[in-house]
Each structure stands twice: as structure tokens, then as C-alpha cells.
């Protein structure tokens, strides 16, 4: 499995297949026998009430959690678990539910870290800052500046991200993931805690990335309006089990799903 294998897969064909994934923390069953697949080029949403196991699912996909049983087929190769570093190298980028930025670094440096895997110069060359190093730095800086322009981050380029408001931090985190130029983007509640306007901006960014860069997107989101609007297919989890999957309009009319949501509608 490699980035190349992933690139070869035609659009509309399966890139990630999760087979009977179960995950337990001691006695807590976070996931029980969940199966679904993600197709290349789609916006795939994972929804469900709090504690349903959505974030755990993303963590299984990029190797943060090791499933207790089940298999992951990624770009045609079966494996029992993923490794975070391997996932990054194979073109998977992600954002976290509770923002995982490098708080002491500026927006620009945070985005530049997204390029680290693609920087090849060794440390002696870096220490001398010879021609090829300067050139490489510049090349990556140019890529990063494109992301900065796309996400409108120009004015906070030099600001340490720890001091930015929540909504902007979410955007910078998306920027870092985009700087990796991923094939697959895993987004854990990218719009949580945002106002309507910020949500609209974020939806637009996600859709543009999907349409223009053809990036496959796996998204967790609580706002049903947004989910129904932007996703191609949806899987619904509840108490770690899959309770439904399909197109947005199928999900909207699915009895079990409605019940699950009504059951927790008071939150």
C-alpha cells in the first residue's frame, strides 16, 4: 500500500474498506462490528449521537487506535491496523475534534509542518542552508502560501496560533492538513462551536477542496443541515454500532436513525 496505489484507484471505487471493526477500552465498547467503505472522491459523513464512536472510528482509520478485531483494507491492501506515520505517508491527513495545533508556532510554521514529509534535505545541508535547502524551503513556502490565500489566513501568518480565536484555529488546522496535499482528508467536527457564517465558510472550503482538488473527505459533523447539504453518503453510528447508511435522503427517512436521534434530542 502506498500513495501511488492510492492515486491509481479510479474515482468512485473503494479506497478504504472497514471490515467488522470492533474496539474496546477495558469494558467500554467504543465500536462493535462496524463495516462500511469510502469511495474515492466522495464526501463521506459519519454521524451519530455523542459517544457513538465516531471519533474512535477516525482514530482507527489513521492508526491512532488499534482495533480489537476486524480488518482495514486501504488502497487494496488488507491490514489489521494502521500506523499514524504510515497513514500520513500514504496520503491521509486529519484534523481533531479538540484542535491539535502547535500552539507555540505561528500560523505559517504550523502550515509548513504539513510539508515536513515532503522535505528531503538532510540535516547537514540544513545546517549549512546551502542552495538546495533554500530552494526547497522556497518551493514549500509557495505551496503553503497558496493554502494561506485559499483559507484567507494572510493577516494571521505570523501570529502564534495559541492566541487565535477558536474558529480561526479550526481553520488553521484545516490549513495544516491541506498543506500535506492529502488524497484523503479526515475531519473531526470541523464546524463545532462555530456561528452560522463561519460554518458556511467552512462548508465552502470543504466542498472546494473536494471539487477542485478531488480530495476524498471523511467528515464527522453534528449539524444535520450541513451534513445533508454537503455529503454524498452517510453512515450512522449509535452506541458503537452501525444503525444505518446510505444517501442523505435515505438517512433522513430512516426510522431507526430518527429514533436514535429523537432519543437524545434533548442534548
Amino acid at each position: 500500500m502506498s500513495l501511488e496505489d492510492l492515486k491509481q484507484i479510479p474515482f468512485g471505487k473503494t479506497v478504504i474498506e472497514l471490515k467488522n471493526i470492533s474496539l474496546a477500552f477495558g469494558g467500554v465498547k467504543a465500536l462493535t462490528d462496524v463495516s462500511f467503505d469510502v469511495k474515492k472522491g466522495e464526501v463521506f459523513a459519519i454521524i451519530g449521537p455523542n459517544g457513538a464512536g465516531k471519533s474512535s472510528m477516525l482514530n482507527v482509520i489513521n492508526g491512532f487506535y488499534k482495533p480489537t478485531s476486524g480488518a482495514i483494507n486501504f488502497a487494496g491492501t488488507d491490514r489489521n491496523e494502521m500506523e499514524p506515520e504510515l497513514a500520513a505517508k500514504s496520503g491521509i491527513a486529519r484534523t481533531f475534534q479538540n484542535i491539535a495545533l502547535f500552539k507555540g508556532m505561528s500560523t505559517l510554521d504550523n502550515l509548513m509542518t504539513g510539508r515536513l514529509l515532503k522535505q528531503k534535505q538532510n540535516f547537514l545541508m540544513q545546517a549549512l542552508y546551502f542552495g538546495p535547502v533554500a530552494k526547497e524551503e522556497e518551493e514549500h513556502r509557495e505551496r503553503v502560501e497558496r493554502v494561506i490565500d485559499f483559507l484567507d489566513l494572510q493577516s494571521i501568518r505570523r501570529t502564534p496560533v495559541g492566541s487565535l480565536p477558536y474558529g480561526l484555529q479550526k481553520r488553521v488546522e484545516l490549513g495544516r492538513a491541506l498543506a500535506m496535499e492529502p488524497e484523503i482528508l479526515l475531519l473531526d467536527e470541523p464546524m463545532a462551536g462555530m456561528n452560522v457564517e463561519e460554518k458556511q465558510d467552512m462548508s465552502r472550503f470543504v466542498l472546494t477542496v473536494n471539487n477542485e482538488l478531488k480530495t476524498t473527505i471523511v467528515l464527522i459533523e453534528h449539524d444535520m443541515g450541513v451534513v445533508m447539504d454537503i455529503s454524498d453518503r452517510i453512515v450512522v453510528l449509535d452506541y458503537g454500532k452501525k444503525i444505518g447508511s446510505g444517501l442523505p435522503k435515505e438517512i433522513r427517512n430512516n426510522k431507526t436513525v430518527i429514533d436514535a436521534y429523537l432519543g437524545v434530542s434533548d442534548d
Binding site: F64, E85, A87, A88, K89, F102, K103, T113, L116, M180
Partner: peptide
Amino acid sequence: MDIAAEIIG
């Protein structure tokens, strides 16, 4: 943040 560092490789 070493966790985030790991996921960017």
C-alpha cells in the same frame, strides 16, 4: 504536541 506531530508524519 507530539500526538499531532505523529499524524503529520
